[in-house]
């Protein structure tokens, strides 16, 4: 039997890079503000994954502490972001990110 392949630190980091890039493409491509917001959550999750990976690689719990704070900030961000989206969409239900250019002064 061949030696058992174990996933190394690099595997996790590359996976997190791919997840981040998918989220990034989503923010650039999608028009629906809600879906763009979900893509931002995707990018936050990719970063969380790399934080946890580094916590294990460096044997330092600080990485996991950082993820904890990222989770709190993400929750606050979602609250405010959805509040803004609700107040915009209440006025124009078909609003996309393009329509928000009317906010220009």
């Amino acid at each position: 039997m061949s030696a058992v392949i174990e996933p190394t630190t690099s595997w996790f980091l590359i996976l997190s890079a791919v997840l981040f890039a998918v989220g990034m493409v989503g923010v650039m491509v999608r028009r629906n503000p809600l879906v763009m917001f979900m893509c931002i959550e995707l990018m936050l999750n990719a970063v969380n994954l790399s934080f946890v990976t580094f916590a294990r690689a460096r044997a330092d719990v600080g990485g996991q502490t950082a993820v904890f704070f990222v989770l709190v900030v993400a929750a606050a961000e979602v609250t405010v972001g959805l509040g803004i989206i609700v107040s915009i969409m209440r006025r124009r239900t078909e609003a996309t990110a393009d329509d928000l250019s009317v906010l220009k002064g």
Partner: peptide, 21 residues
């Protein structure tokens, strides 16, 4: 972005030190 990050991860593979507690 994927290429850049993958290259960064692969070139610095040995730089991650196990120096925590």
């Amino acid at each position: 972005m994927v290429g850049l990050l993958t290259a960064a991860v692969l070139t610095s593979e040995s730089a991650v030190l196990e120096d925590g507690k």
